[in-house]
Simulated scan of single mutants.
Amino acid sequence: MHVLRVAQVFDGERFVASGNGPVDVALDGGAVVSVGPPVDYASDASVEDLGDATALPGLVDAHQHLTWDCSPDPLGWHTASDDTDLRGRGRENARRALAAGVTTVRDLGGRGLVTLALRDELAADPTAGPAVLAAGPALTTPGGHCWFLGGECADAVQLRTTVGRLAAAGVDVVKVMATGGNVTPGSAPHESQFGIAELRAVVESAHAAGLPVAAHAHGTGGVADALAAGVDTIEHVTFMTADGIARDPGLVERLATAGVPLSLTGASLPGTPPAPALAARFPALIEHVRELLASGARCFFSTDAGIGPAKPHDVLPHGAVMIVEIGRKSVARAVAMCTSGPADALGIGDSVGRLRVGARADVLVVQGRLSDDVSALLRPVRVLHQGVDVARPTAH
């Protein structure tokens, strides 16, 4: 048994303290066996006193692109790289994510089946990278957003066929581009790519195969159609227009009432300028995020890591800081949006995203008391993945 002794614990939902004394997180193999005040352990237990530190669940980043290179030209990267290059870059990005305490990643778009091979490789070694849920290529229109990943489909028939092929290949989730996006030349994020009928075809086919559907959607039309089609998560949800951000209180209310999980991919590296199209919209986008957070909609935070210089694969802790500073939320709410919130949205909340008896032993320990300072997330001192101690991380 390995016991981590810290000043406080965030269990995925709330902070746990033990009066004025320390709190222990006891791990046995790959599982959490207790969280609470120190007790008398068996003689073979190893107790590691980490002092004035906070233990929390490993972070869950529900929107990454592990095999992308964070350059401003994703199309150029994919054009110049073969699958060996992509998988090698994925290994590097996975190690970087894990060192920051990201122990679970949902990869929502890689070329062909390379991310499935990477997923299986990482699963064999807990120190190599996070656990991965992989979508493979995102479904898109011919020449549409991220067409270079290999998921082009012209109509509902092709969408159903491709979902079946991906299910047979072993994907964990199906990704569909309900709207265009920012990183593909000729694609506009405010414009819808598929209508309700096509999106329903994806949802029906995926659900029949036991797979959830994540819908990329920026414009309000695409968001509304994804909601109506019954997707399992909606990604981005920015309400972009041709030149700004739309206000649509009615749609916000419908999203909140439906309870569909919304993946807000706003985590970015401070000091790295966003793309010009996003920079011009930034003030309105902040107000839009605040409206979503205040509405009661089921929001969690993620990164879209890999798509550009502002999105490295260890950036999720900065997202929690943003939620507190920009979203005006408590530290507990912000950290839950990066742990238990995404875990529940992905249907894995019983095993990850929380420190509780029986959960997977994915633990991030940060310097200081997180309840007093959310930026403690940027000071990791220990990461354990499936109970295995990962190489000592470095602060951001």
Results as ranks from 00 to 15, higher is better:
Ser268Ala: 15
Thr127His: 02
Thr220Asp: 14
Ala280His: 00
Leu377Gly: 01
Gln158Val: 06
His396Asn: 10
Ala395Asn: 12
Pro312Cys: 09
Val23Gly: 03
Ala201Ser: 14
Glu92Asp: 13
Val223Ile: 15
Gln193Gly: 11
Pro309Trp: 04
Val132Thr: 03
Thr184Leu: 10
Ser295Asn: 03
Thr257Ala: 15
Ala154Val: 14
Ala359Met: 05
Val366Ser: 07
Ala246Lys: 12
Asp172Asn: 03
Pro312Gln: 03
Met322His: 10
Asp373Phe: 05
Val132Lys: 00
Asp28Cys: 04
Arg382Ser: 12
Ala197Arg: 10
Ala117Pro: 01
Ala208His: 14
Asp350His: 09
Ala277Glu: 15
Ala100Trp: 02
Val114Gln: 03
Ser81Gly: 05
Ala267Asp: 06
Glu291Thr: 13
Leu346Asn: 02
Glu235Lys: 00
Ala55Pro: 05
Gln64Asp: 15
Leu264Ser: 08
Val223Lys: 06
Pro72Arg: 10
Glu287His: 05
Pro283Thr: 08
Gly341Lys: 07
Leu251Thr: 14
Gly244Thr: 06
Gly30Tyr: 13
Arg106His: 06
Gly222Asp: 10
Arg95Ala: 15
Ile245Cys: 11
Asp85Tyr: 01
Arg369Trp: 09
Leu59Ala: 03
Ser295Ile: 10
Gly30Trp: 13
Leu59Met: 09
Val357Gln: 15
Leu149Phe: 13
Ala320Val: 11
Val388Ala: 11
Val35Ile: 12
Val321Trp: 00
Ala154Gln: 13
His78Ala: 01
Leu149His: 10
Leu66Lys: 02
Gly230Ser: 12
Asp373His: 06
Pro393Thr: 14
Leu355Ala: 04
Thr241Gly: 11
Thr265Met: 11
Ser351Ile: 11
His207Glu: 13
Ala31Glu: 14
Ala168Trp: 10
His313Ala: 05
Gly144Pro: 03
Asp61His: 02
Val315Lys: 02
Leu285Ile: 00
Gly51Thr: 10
His2Glu: 15
Thr339Lys: 02
Gly181Ile: 08
Leu384Val: 12
Leu293Ser: 04
Ala258His: 15
Val352Gly: 01
Asp155Val: 02
Ser187Glu: 11
Val363Phe: 04
Gly19Lys: 11
His145Ser: 04
Gly358Cys: 09
His396Tyr: 14
Gly195Ala: 09
Ala94Cys: 07
Ala168Arg: 09
Ala267Gly: 03
Ile196Lys: 07
Leu370Lys: 09
Val9Thr: 05
Met1Pro: 02
Leu27Asn: 04
Gln193His: 07
Ala123Leu: 08
Ala376Cys: 15
Asp125Gly: 00
Thr394Tyr: 07
Gly143Tyr: 13
Ala134Tyr: 05
Gly143Ala: 05
Thr84Trp: 13
His236Val: 00
Val374Gln: 09
Thr67Arg: 08
Leu113Ser: 04
Gly19Ala: 05
Cys153Glu: 13
Arg290Val: 01
Pro249Lys: 02
Gly112Thr: 05
Val33Trp: 08
Pro276Ala: 14
Leu377Gln: 08
His145Gln: 13
Cys338Thr: 15
Leu227Gly: 11
Ile323Ser: 12
Val374Ala: 11
Thr103Ser: 04
Gly222Gln: 04
Leu75Ala: 14
Leu166Asp: 05
Glu235Asn: 07
Glu291Ile: 01
